[in-house]
């Protein structure tokens, strides 16, 4: 996916990434974290804004920096980096609100053909995983590198 992305930093195990969003609201540091879950080789993907003063991470703030496509493309880039290092891993993601989950769904739908070249993509609907399809409302997402 040759979309503009922000430069990425990470710690050596590639479980934590950082990048800086730039837009009308200035520079906003974003943190992406892959967390272990109770299922082996399944990781939760979450990301949020890093407070410049306190260093605290918040995934519920709405920064509205005018670059959501670039932010999502950068987060997707971390999925490539993470699954390159951990090829047997599953990556789970959902939004902190329904609106955010919808935003992620729209992002996946927009680039679905390309994403499906490299990943199996599933959406959660009515407590079942199904292969991701456009225009279907899902509660969560799961991907695995092919």
């Amino acid at each position: 996916m040759k979309l503009p992305k922000y430069p990425l930093k990470a710690e050596k195990s590639l479980m934590v990434f950082e990048f800086t969003s730039e837009g009308p609201k200035g520079k906003i540091k974003k943190l992406v974290k892959y967390s272990e879950t109770n299922l082996k080789d399944l990781y939760n993907l979450a990301f949020g804004d890093k407070d410049n003063v306190t260093g605290e991470i918040n995934d519920s703030t709405i920064s509205n920096n005018g670059d959501s496509d670039m932010v999502l493309a950068t987060v997707v880039a971390t999925v490539y980096a993470f699954t390159d290092k951990y090829p047997d891993s599953w990556v789970f993601a959902t939004g902190s609100t329904k609106a955010r989950t919808r935003l992620y769904r729209i992002g996946i739908s927009k680039y679905l053909l390309e994403i499906k070249r490299d990943f199996q993509v599933f959406g959660l609907k009515d407590e079942e995983w199904e292969p991701f399809e456009k225009d279907v409302v899902y509660e969560a997402f799961l991907v695995k590198r092919k």
Binding site: K5, P7, K9, V16, N44, I57, D59, Y80, S96
Partner: peptide, 30 residues
């Protein structure tokens, strides 16, 4: 796959229970 710069200062976030509510939600779903 992006080029990623390794930054040791991010090590501390690995041990912090960030986004714990989302991890808990993921575990419940799973």
């Amino acid at each position: 796959t992006p080029i990623v710069t390794i930054d040791k200062s991010l090590e501390k976030f690995k041990k912090q229970p960030l986004f714990q509510d989302k991890v808990d939600k993921a575990n419940e779903i799973l």
